[in-house]
């Protein structure tokens, strides 16, 4: 490696990066999503998927689910940084394993001739799909499953006229009676 001319330290040791799913409970106020997303972009973290909706109408709390990739120490840092945001109540990070439930919703529209539509339907029937709209030249199918299962469906449908795909990105929830407690040490 050539000697660095910069006084900034050179990046060294590569830690293993893994997929993590961060769940952030926030006050549902204007600009909150930009604060969270801006923190990720500003500090060089990546957002792969993002799902947001209000989950507590009385307290106006939204639950944000973000898929990101990073080393364990990066994920710890993201967590600590997120907790510093004023509208953030609590943060949890999950790894993708059998300790939690992961679900994603996909809508797929197929447009094609009769022959292709039939072949496509055959594929769809082998998954736990639901038909939401059917016409002579098209249909829309819904699949509510894991990310990899949806990937597989889309891959198989590709040759038969996939015209439009919509996916929510995963939601995650821990199994059993465990829930995420308010993080200790929230400091303004």
């Amino acid at each position: 490696m050539s000697k660095s001319l910069s006084a900034y330290s050179v990046e060294n040791k590569k830690e293993k990066t893994e997929k993590h799913i961060m769940v952030v409970w926030v006050d549902n106020e204007s600009g909150v999503l930009t604060r969270v997303a801006g923190l990720f972009s500003g500090r060089g973290y990546n957002i792969e998927t993002l799902a947001v909706a209000q989950v507590d109408d009385a307290k106006h709390i939204s639950r944000i689910t973000i898929t990101t990739e990073g080393t364990n120490s990066v994920v710890d840092q993201i967590k600590a940084q997120l907790l510093k945001l004023i509208p953030v109540h609590k943060v949890a990070s999950f790894q993708i394993n059998n300790k939690s439930i992961l679900r994603e919703l996909a809508l797929v529209k197929i447009i094609g001739n009769k022959k292709n539509l039939e072949k496509a339907k055959k594929i769809c029937n082998s998954f736990k799909t639901e038909y939401l709209d059917t016409t002579k030249s098209s249909f829309i199918v819904e699949l509510n499953s894991t990310r990899s299962e949806i990937d597989r469906l889309i891959k198989e449908l590709k040759p038969y006229g996939v015209a439009s795909i919509a996916r929510t990105g995963p939601l995650i929830m821990s199994k059993g009676s465990e829930i995420t407690q308010i993080n200790k040490g929230k400091i303004l």
Partner: peptide
Amino acid sequence: DIDPSSINKIIK
């Protein structure tokens, strides 16, 4: 430190 995000940010 008073800021939890400063802990283990750069040096473990």
